[in-house]
């Protein structure tokens, strides 16, 4: 089995229109939780301004890989990462890298909507405020409004910006979390099963939003739903037992996968 490491070569060979230059690039990434290895030599590129979906059965390492991309694994004491991950050709595990800056550039949306127990306004304004993105009060209002608009939430909440964010519905909360991530002007947005706690209507709304966001942001999404991967992503990577099984343009992955395991998984034979 030949793992594809260079998206550009892939593009040239396949002529897939979605493939773009790699924004983030993982090379031979291994992750250990204590003595247990969770990822084995994963090399995967994330193309700029497109949606990359990570799929695979539970416990396959797709969330682990995602959390390596903004070094969220640092918060787990026993986690150890080897290999190289770059953002714009800069190694993010280089000790000189500022993690705070990295996490501002690589934002994250989590599985369960987790707004701060503060007002809607404060939820969005918090990031810009700590990073000093707004010099005046008016600027901050502007950032909040634009972020909420980009997250497609502004019209629903504009009259109650100062009510608690936890009072919104699940789907609205998740879009609030997306607005919060957007507010610090990230380049990449990581989404860890962002729709798994939402109902189908809210899911459709968020998926639509992901498609719109692709224009300005590079998005990596972990999902359990094959249909969702097919709907929103341009490229898909299939993980299994800590290995990257296969990676390629989404339509090819779902119509003509190279690996038997991918085929079994997308047809629902395991997982």
């Amino acid at each position: 089995m030949n793992m594809l490491t260079d998206a550009a070569v892939e593009t040239a060979l396949e002529g897939a229109p979605e493939s773009k230059a790699a924004k983030m690039r993982g090379e031979k990434v291994n992750v250990f939780y204590g003595g247990k290895q969770a990822l084995f030599d994963v090399s995967l590129d994330v193309g700029e301004n497109q949606v990359t979906a990570l799929i695979g059965p539970s416990g396959c390492g797709k969330s682990t890989f995602l959390r390596c991309l903004n070094r969220m694994n640092d918060t787990i004491d026993i986690a150890r990462v080897t290999g190289k991950i770059t953002l714009d050709d800069e190694d993010i595990y280089n000790p000189r890298i500022d993690v705070v800056e990295l996490r501002a550039r690589v934002g994250m949306v989590f599985q369960k909507p987790n707004p701060f127990p503060k007002s809607i306004y404060e939820n969005v304004a918090y990031g810009p405020r700590i990073h000093g993105l707004a010099s005046a009060k008016g600027d901050l209002d502007g950032i909040v409004e634009t972020s909420l608009q980009k997250a497609g939430l502004f019209n629903e909440v504009k009259d109650r910006l100062h009510e608690p964010g936890t009072g919104l519905s699940g789907g609205q909360q998740q879009r609030l979390c997306i607005a919060r991530a957007i507010a610090v002007s990230p380049e990449v947005i990581l989404m860890d099963e962002p729709c798994s706690a939402l109902d189908p209507i809210a899911t459709a709304r968020v998926e639509e939003l992901i498609d719109e966001l692709r224009e300005n942001y590079t998005i990596v999404i972990v999902t359990h739903s094959m249909q969702q991967a097919a709907r929103v992503s341009q490229r898909t990577a299939m993980f299994h037992l800590g290995n990257l099984v296969e990676e390629g343009p989404t339509d090819k992955m779902f119509t003509n996968p190279e690996d038997k395991r991918t085929q079994d998984y997308i047809t629902g034979r395991f997982g």
Binding site: N70, M72, T75, V100, E101, L102, R103, A104, G107, M108, V109, F110, K112, N114, P115, F116, P117, Y126, G127, I130, H131, C177, R180, A181, A183, V184
Partner: peptide, 23 residues
């Protein structure tokens, strides 16, 4: 305090003291 709050703050680039003191 649920870890999701820490993750939310860390995820937008809050530093350790901000995660602790603000959230």
């Amino acid at each position: 305090i649920p870890p999701s709050i820490r993750e939310a703050a860390l995820g937008i680039g809050a530093s350790k003291h901000e995660v602790i003191l603000h959230h």
